[in-house]
Design a protein around this nucleic acid. Structure first.
Lengths: 191, 191
DNA sequence: ACAAAGATACACCGATCGGTGTACCTTGTC
DNA sequence: GACAAGGTACACCGATCGGTGTATCTTTGT
């Protein structure tokens, strides 16, 4: 019994290639070649390339958020600390040599229609990340967890783009320092 | 003598299509069709599609920054005010019905290699926008114009992504409020 | 041992990709 | 009125696109 099903191999390979080279720029021929799988097998598991893209994005969302939550909780002991370690986790991410920006921002760029399932899923991913941050903000006892989560989320997005497009490897550091200002504000005792 | 040369028509048409549908997803066939121009004419002005993409991005950079500077200066009278009106200009941009995010973020997503000329030009565009902001910060007498410009730039990037991917039409408002915190800090009298 | 499931190789499909070659036609200039 | 420049239409190129059909082979459960 294989630890990885053919389907898993296909998704993992497609994920790597889509992330590295883009969606439209990656043909199914290349995916099956690198996955070591026949074209028939791919189309046995997925009705179309577009369905494969969607499955790939779903997988990425799961892997990304699981890693974000695990690492954030490893680096920070309290909810307050964790609001900041979110930025450290992003910083680590930006340093990885295969960092190619946020796959969901990239997907939104290629699938520009807001009705496109891939774009919708990208928005959903962003919503879920922000939801996690809002949870941390609530646990930390923030005055307005909703507002704080929107602020921190915006800083994260900015850092990702700056790190990727401009290659600014300290983007997360700057964003973290900015974040601390709003965290302090939101967690200050109301007097 | 035509007001617009064939070349200008081609670039303008390609700009619209690339921005709306993406680079790889837009074929030259469609461009020449909508531009009302023969394929030979296009390849008479540009050696390849990639060269057309580059020319298109250059044009976009010029148009975007000219508009940004003009509108920013129209909306704010002092340098301090203008540091904030930058966000108002972005807010207006986000409300436009043909808003499809930042063309340079989109380009970086599709041309992922940092050595790719289109990616390099995108980074250069971002650098020039930040340079403009730093100029405003200096005119306003900021303590550390370099730092402030990095902070405001990060907020702008975040707002653009949030407005586009998640369709958050108030992203610029949030970013502006956050920006004011750092502007206040940087312009406070040192005592 | 046997049959069903699933994977394989490979040929093939029409459409589209970026790009070229040819031949004609329009336009402004001297 | 001749000429060159630059435009047009259109056929065509090899390559690749996403996707399918067929026939064979390997694995799997019972």
């Amino acid at each position: 019994m294989p630890a990885l099903s053919k389907r898993d191999i296909i998704v993992a390979t497609a994920l790597k290639l889509f992330y590295r080279h883009g969606f439209n720029a990656t043909g199914v021929e290349r995916i099956i070649k690198e996955a070591g799988v026949s074209k028939k097998t791919l189309y046995n598991h997925f009705k179309s390339k577009d369905e494969l893209v969607l499955a790939t994005l779903r997988q990425r969302d799961e892997l990304f958020r699981n890693n974000l939550m695990r690492e954030t909780e490893r680096l920070g002991d309290t909810a307050r600390e964790r609001l900041l370690s979110v930025f450290d986790v992003h910083h680590q991410w930006f340093q990885q040599k295969d960092f190619s920006g946020c796959m969901f921002i990239n997907a939104a760029a290629e699938f520009s229609s807001h009705q496109n399932p891939n774009h919708i899923l990208s928005a959903e991913h962003k919503r879920l990340v922000r939801h996690y941050i809002r949870g941390l903000a609530e646990q930390a006892g923030a005055n307005n967890a909703e507002t704080l989560s929107k602020q921190l989320n915006l800083l994260l997005e900015g850092a990702i783009v700056d790190a990727y497009v401009s290659g600014n490897s300290e983007a997360a550091i700057i964003a973290k320092a900015m974040a601390s200002v709003f965290i302090e504000k939101a967690l200050a005792r109301v007097h």
